[in-house]
Amino acid sequence: MARSKKPKLAVWKFASCDGCQLTLLDCEDELLPLSEKIEIAYFLEATRATVKGPFDLSLVEGSITTPHDVERIKKIRDESEALITIGACATSGGIQALRNFKDVADFVDLVYARPDYIDTLETSTPISDHVAVDFELRGCPIDKGQLLEVVNAFLNGRKPNVSPYSVCMECKRRGAVCVMVAGRTPCLGPVTQAGCGALCPSFARGCFGCFGPMESPNAGSLSAWWLERLGASEEDVLRALRTFNTNATAFREESEVHDV
């Protein structure tokens, strides 16, 4: 077979739920045109065809939680011209990083009858703790439009247009009523990066932080607001910061203030 000139895309999975790579398959209108422009060289969820590296672009889903995966990500980095992490697991460690605050042996005991069969690390860490990452796409799950933008940008050698500001900006832009001011509902929107389109506030619920901390968030100020003005408890603040991006620096550090 003649060697393809199209850029080679690979999609890799580590500890994760498959939702972010599914977002690529959820591009129902764009998938077939996209496949004409790029060669899908490795994407197990979609194809059994596997083309050898090197790859022009690797999309990585999931966090590092096993000794085997520590080695696997290094090999993938070596074979990839550009490496982009997709989603909260790959970018911050994901929900499974809740183990980082506990003894993972207790978790293993609780879930598995034979802990000796389980090979796992004490922590769940983002890809960037192990190898150099060219771009981190946020979200639990990622946004389809942002994914297409990032792939497009990398294949055309330009910077992705993904904004680092907060969910509040999106709320204002879509004219959603502030759930904190109007409804006294605790919301992580002021410290969470935009990308979802202010989804939760538009459904009359507080943001719960799927996209992780915005650029330079003031999490301490928000916690104080929750505690003093919304009647939230220390535990409420702690739990809100400890979900899908619990290991992202700003959320982790602020959560430790409330872990009493």
Partner: peptide, 22 residues
């Protein structure tokens, strides 16, 4: 060989409102 993620374990100590999202 999907790595273990321990959902049963980290649901402990959470509010009864959180399991649908988690």
């Amino acid at each position: 060989y999907e790595p273990p993620r321990f959902f049963e374990a980290f649901l402990r100590g959470r509010s009864h409102k959180e399991p649908p999202d988690i």
